[in-house]
Each structure stands twice: as structure tokens, then as C-alpha cells.
Amino acid sequence: MEYMRLNKKNMAVFIEELGRTCEVWGPVKEGEQVKYAPVSNATDMALDGFKNSTMSPKEIFFPQSEKMLSFRREGEDANIYRDEQAQPTKKAIFGIRPCDARAFRILDMIFKNDQFTDNYWFSKRDATTLVGLGCTEPCSTCFCTSVNSHPFDEKGLDVLVSDLGEHYLFKALTKKGRELVAGISVMREPSDANIEAHMVLRKKAEDVMTVQFGTDKVKDKTVLELFNEDCWTGISEPCLNCSTCSYVCPTCHCFDIQDEVSKEGGERVRNWESCMTWIFTVHATGHNPRPTKKERVRQRFMHKFKYIPMKRNGEIGCVGCGRCVALCPVNIDIREVVKQMNS
């Protein structure tokens, strides 16, 4: 039962049965945005014409502001740190795109090393089953095939779902995924034609997504060669140094820790931060090792396309979701940046 089939008419049953074991999340429309949120029936989900969520789903495991601990000045527990991590709820997320699941894998590598594990990330991440949806109609801003991935990439997902029109075809990829599929009474064995249809969709999407740039020369050049390229001045000139690209990106993961204190006590909160900002690197002395736009812009692209691949066996730190391409206020297009890096 590698593959199982679900008639779309049975989505309500699927959500109901899945909901008995965990919270079910899916893409939901909220004003102009699409985001992943808990759903209680199939009609809650904005699957019609669904491309991807506005913000990346990293916010589910790594919220923009996250309370870490709290303390009080007086009383029995004065000056004792209290762990403020909420108990993670078990959830299954339907509709995650393969690029975003791949980004989770990259963040898994980053939030863990041989000494430390970031429990804030992993407690929520481990309690989640990812039921991904292959992309049959990628956007013009998508470029996953240029960064070693593709619209039906399975890496990082627990289940890959293919939209066959009348049915969804479920391909369980992990133990968690197999358990999820096995727990649904309305799953049926697919026909050979269903599996064939899935293969055709997959092939079609891959064909649409032509490779838009290479990364071979970025790989071959040394860090210093790339670092000292002339291109950075021109690339950075229009940049506003806002944090839009970093905040919408599924792999950007920098944060800042702040103590929010009052008369009675306080809380320690970690908030997203961005290497694009001046304040990110300024020292207490006033010295800033990344004093101008050029250094900041260079950092973001070098991190994704050179530093992460160097440290993580060639894994590229960009998954090609195209959010930064679509949302950068001044149209700094990462595809054009990499083309220049790779020239």
C-alpha cells in the first residue's frame, strides 16, 4: 500500500477521522493572505486555485515572536526562570508544498548540532505529520528545479498527495505517513491508471519548470572569489534593506532574543531578525562589520548559495519557493542574483 486513493467527496470524512487523533491544519484564506491554520471541515480549506501560503509555514514551528521563559521579581519563585514553552499539539498539515517541506529539512540541520538541539523548533516539528501536495501548476516565480528540487519532491514530507481531479492519490513516505493513511477508513487501493495519472502530472509539472540558472560555478569558486565579486554593488543598489525577503523565506532562521520587563517581572522572547538590517550586526561599540547595504545583501545570498552548501554537503539554502521574488518591494530577484554569482 505505497499508494492509496481518496475520493474528494470523502474529504470531510478524512478530516473528521484524522481529527480524532490530532489537530488538522490546512491552507486557509485570511483577508488577502493564505496561511496554514486549524480546519474542522473540508470547506475551510482554500484549495481551489491554491498556489502556496503567503508567509512560509516555518512560522508554525518557529513563530515570529516566541515566549521562551518568564520571571518574577517578588514572591516565592522570585528570580527563578519558568519555562514558557507551550506543550506542542499533535498535528497533521494538509497541503504543504514540497519546497516548504524541503525547507523544514534544512532548518532541521540548522536547529541541531552535535552539542545542542533547539527544543523550541523540534518539539513542534516532531509532533507534526506533513501531508504535502505536489504542484501541478507552479507559479512563474517558482524555480525549485534550479535548486536541486522539483514540484513533486518527496524529501521532507511524510505523505505526498497528487491531485487527480476526482481523487487524491496518497503516497506514504515515512512511518508517520503510513500510520496516518492507514487510519482513514475511506482510503481505497488505487487503479494502475491512477498511478499512471500521477506520474503524468509529475512529469508535466517538471517539464513546465525548466531549470532557470546553474549553480556549478558558485560551487567551484572559492568563498573569497565570490565575496569579492564586483556584482554586489549593483545587486545591492536598489535594496531597501527591509526584512521582507528574510521574513517570507522558509529557510531564513535568524532571531534576536529580547527581555520584555515590567515592574513585576518579565519574559524572554525570541523574535525573527534579518541580516538585511543595519541593526543585525551593529556592535555595542557602534562599530558595524556590515556597514553598508552591499555587505548585508551579499550576506543573504552568500549564506543561501555558498555557506549552507559548503557546510551541509551541497544542500542549497534556498528551496525555490519564489516568495521573495514575488514580494520584494523593489523586485530584487534572487534568480538574477544567482545568475550573476554563477557567471
Binding site: E32, C242, S243, T244, S274, W278, I279
Partner: peptide, 23 residues
């Protein structure tokens, strides 16, 4: 929906302070 990216500030020609109050 605000994500505090400050693109609104950074795109604005009035906001030229070297260090914004918010930073």
C-alpha cells in the same frame, strides 16, 4: 497581518534617520 519588516518605512523618503526610533 503586519510582520514588522519595515518595508513601509524603508521605502519612504521621509524616513531617512540613520537610526530609527524603532531600532
Amino acid at each position: 497581518p503586519c510582520i514588522r519588516c519595515y518595508a513601509c518605512r524603508d521605502a519612504c523618503p521621509l524616513c531617512y534617520c540613520p537610526e530609527c526610533f524603532v531600532d
